[in-house]
């Protein structure tokens, strides 16, 4: 599904990613872990085409995303839930969802489906996004990304700062997407959540691949993951 090979990314003169390689399969949750500043968010942005690669390639089902103009990447079915949610704050809930629906021609039925997944958003459709609570904002960011009918879903620390009930809502959505055959690439800091959900984990450190573990390895040796993160 997603195949990244030898990816270099720089911010000006500062190189952040150095030859990163990673794969994510359909119907699996792939977790990306690393300490702060390791380059996780940079990798997410590079997949979305928001940062140009200096070297290497990013391919989705054989299509080279790294060769496409940035606005064509989401049209290939890549949904993005960024760190900090980054909603269009002055637009209403309905308009934020509409932006997502427009990307790949989503219709009223899909909109209805999203509002059934997140019924609280239905009550807030006319409300400005920046007036929602943190949990509601995360629901909206998730709904906006799901409005693309993604084949690949990128989530950058989606549970950061959320209360446990809301974390469970997001977890259920992620598991549902996996069960529907979506490839999920999840940046997550909570080791317990990763051990619970991940089918494969990639650890990056200082912008380079450090370790890779499958589900069996994670279960057999959870300390290996904790050791990388110093927890």
């Amino acid at each position: 599904m997603l195949k990244i090979e030898g990816l270099d990314v720089s911010y000006g003169a500062a190189q952040v990613l150095r030859g990163v390689s990673l794969t994510a399969q359909a119907g699996q949750i792939t977790c990306l872990m690393g300490r702060n500043g390791a380059g996780k968010t940079t990798l997410m942005k590079a997949i979305m085409g928001l940062l140009p690669p200096g070297a290497g390639s990013i391919a989705l089902e054989g299509t080279l995303l790294s060769d496409l103009p940035p606005h064509e990447v989401p049209k290939q079915g890549v949904g993005y839930i960024p760190q900090g949610r980054r909603l269009f704050g002055e637009l209403t809930v309905a308009q934020n969802i509409e932006i997502g629906l427009m990307t790949r021609g989503g219709d009223a039925a899909l909109r209805e489906e999203l509002l059934e997944i997140f019924p609280r958003l239905r009550e807030r459709l006319g409300q400005r996004a920046d007036t929602l609570s943190g949990g509601e904002q995360q629901m909206l960011a998730t709904a906006r990304a799901l409005a693309l009918r993604p084949k690949l879903l990128l989530l950058d620390e989606p549970t950061e700062g959320l209360q446990p009930s809301m974390i469970e809502v997001i977890r259920q959505v992620v598991l549902t997407m996996r069960d529907r055959g979506v490839a999920v690439l999840l940046v997550e800091q909570r080791v317990d959540a990763v051990l619970d959900m991940a089918d494969r984990v990639f650890v990056i450190e200082m912008g380079a691949n450090r370790d890779e573990m499958d589900r069996a390895t994670l279960r057999a040796d959870p300390g290996r993951l904790r050791a990388h993160l110093g927890v």
């Binding site: 990447v73 993005y80 269009f88 704050g89 637009l91 308009q95 932006i99 790949r104």
Partner: peptide
């Protein structure tokens, strides 16, 4: 709507195909 989304956050607008 597209213009306003671009005004508010150009990078996220790009991430949604604009």
């Amino acid at each position: 709507l597209i213009m306003r989304a671009t005004q508010l956050d150009g990078e996220m607008a790009t991430a949604f195909g604009i």
